[in-house]
Design a protein around this nucleic acid. Structure first.
Lengths: 200, 200
DNA sequence: GACTCTCTGTACCGATCGGTACAATCTCCG
DNA sequence: CGGAGATTGTACCGATCGGTACAGAGAGTC
């Protein structure tokens, strides 16, 4: 019966892991929709279907822990789907196209907001400064490496990667402000061309 | 004594107008620093030096009126210092350079945030949707007109103006996120070149 | 000085905030 | 089934939220 016991426990752990991931995802949507300050415990309980008891059992650190786990999960997603492919890419053009495709998917072609950007602008920025900075820093380094391999100088690569990140953020802001996802799509299309352009 | 009376009233009105402008400016800083939801009445009374009584006497509509007056004031500033010069410009290159200089001044070279962008991303977006959209729409139209006069096609001019707005917003987000005003300065420099470039 | 009207400080309102306490319940195990 | 530990709903906490009521201070007019 030992085997059964172990299996059961593994299943449980796995299930818990999955559930927690699901919860963190739901939390992310709440923070995205209402910001860190605006995401009240009431909204959070509604979005997750969890009472305060469960919530504080799962996240003893309260809202702050919830938000930082959400940021960590975002980071993990980008690490897996964006940074890592960028780092390991051999074909620069293909890697950049894949990055843009990934970004387009993640942000639902401009319908979805960047939570990291939102936090960066808000009052809670200082609390999560390290996560926010790390998110963009790692992205820039990974993208710059690809650009460098495609023949750009170090400075050019860094500058062009910076331009890419800023364009994505700006496109999300403007698309949201004007309720026009077309802005995001056009910006991503232009950005691809700009990233792929030969060194100046 | 009629003259004196009138003069006194005018002075008073003027003084009130100035004071109100000063108050709205202070309100703007609070909203910028804490967002619409985060700007509590306590913070507002501290920033303005006005008690609740005065505040609700001046702004019977409460926080919402305060915020919309702040947005209106921002709009007026841009109308005067950015949109209008853009519309009346004869020298496109000079007009664009002036716009970038104005933007750099307004945003303190990246140290200051765009309140309109912040509102656009936040939960209060719907409340102020018209102001937010109008701000960007008018800017884009004015800038596109200049670009059109400089020889670009209508579509190209619109697209390039869109790119300019999005770049400014993105630069502000990224500069804030990474606590590096240099990002904003570099972006503005690049943007100027991009705007001035000949038609593709 | 008395009247009027604008302005302001303060006390107060119900609602909600993030967070805690804890008993009840559920789940797994022997 | 019985015990142990994880999980949960609910009542409750003090603080603060945005907003209101109102008495009184202040200033301009006669």
């Amino acid at each position: 019966m030992l085997q059964a016991s172990v299996t059961t426990r593994c299943d449980q752990m796995l299930k818990r892991g999955v559930e927690r991931k699901e919860i963190v995802r739901a939390l992310g949507e709440v923070f995205r929709a209402h910001g860190y300050e605006g995401a009240s415990l009431t909204l959070i309980t509604e979005a997750t279907g969890l009472g305060k008891g469960s919530l504080y059992h799962l996240f003893p650190g309260g809202k702050e822990q919830m938000a930082s786990e959400v940021l960590a999960e975002i980071d993990a997603w980008f690490e897996l789907n964006i940074y890592s492919p960028l780092r390991e890419a051999s074909d620069s053009a293909r890697a950049i196209a894949a990055m843009i495709a990934g970004v387009d998917e993640y942000f639902h072609s401009g319908d979805r907001i960047c939570l990291v950007g939102l936090v960066a602008l808000g009052a809670s920025r200082d609390t999560f400064a390290a996560s926010v900075d790390g998110y963009f820093a790692r992205w820039q380094v990974a993208l710059a490496a690809v650009l460098r391999r495609s023949g750009l100088s170090k400075g050019q690569a860094q500058r062009r990667a910076e331009d890419a990140l800023l364009t994505i953020q700006g496109a999300l802001v403007l698309a949201r402000a004007r309720s026009d996802a077309g802005i995001f799509r056009r910006a991503m299309s232009d950005l691809t061309k700009r990233l792929l352009a030969p060194a100046e």
